[in-house]
């Protein structure tokens, strides 16, 4: 927890878990529409977590939101537009800004690049890598795109039927897969 104490997650009350969800944790949905409030402006989307932890100064909330939109490469004049009018890549970047604004330490990303075209994917991955390095946060990325996994991650676990079947450093798992399923995965990548 932020007060420096170690706590067992399974012993936390629901209130404490939900507090974690909006402070130290982030959750980036595969479909940005699930992770954003589509009917309120981009600025309010970014500011929501700030207000949820007690931010009550409009000017400061807006300044922080503007700063974060800049960091995820959304121009500041879109701050009052609704995410409905954003493209898929912009929505995904907005969702990332919304999650990172309270300085979380652990972010869970569920196929953050799913459904985006390749050029947008590349920029998003680049951005993610930059933010992760800059903020020193940990990210758990769920993906079936092994190229994304190799680019982003340091460690990798392979799951099948809800169980971890193999884990290790990313390069080791991808270059020397031991389980049959992992071998199948790795060998199924199309070589162009």
């Amino acid at each position: 927890m932020r007060d420096g104490q170690w706590r067992d997650l399974y012993d936390l009350s629901e209130a404490e878990r939900r507090l974690l969800m909006r402070t130290d944790w982030g959750f980036v949905h595969q479909n940005p529409a699930d992770g954003l409030r589509m009917s309120v402006s981009a600025g309010a989307n970014v500011g929501e977590r700030l207000m949820a932890v007690g931010g009550r100064h409009y000017g400061q909330i807006r300044a922080t939101a503007t700063d974060w939109l800049g960091r995820v490469e959304i121009s500041a004049d879109r701050i009052d537009d609704q995410p409905r009018s954003f493209s898929g890549g912009m929505r995904q970047r907005l969702q990332i800004a919304r999650n990172l604004v309270t300085g979380p330490r652990l972010v869970f990303m569920d196929e953050p690049t799913g459904g985006l075209d390749v050029s947008v994917q590349a920029r998003l991955l680049d951005l993610l890598r930059g933010l992760v390095g800059e903020l020193g946060l940990s990210a758990i990325v769920v993906t079936h795109d092994l190229a994304v996994a190799r680019l982003l991650s340091h460690r990798m676990v392979v799951m099948k039927d809800g169980r971890v079947i193999e884990s290790g450093l990313t390069d080791r798992v991808l270059d020397d897969p031991r389980e049959p399923y992992t071998q199948l995965l790795v060998s199924s990548i199309l070589q162009v």
Binding site: R22, S41, A44, A52, V53, Y58, D80
Partner: peptide, 13 residues
């Protein structure tokens, strides 16, 4: 916090 999101929207618009 959500209640303030509504007020924020008001001011932004």
């Amino acid at each position: 916090g959500l209640m303030h999101v509504k007020l924020y929207e008001d001011i932004a618009r």
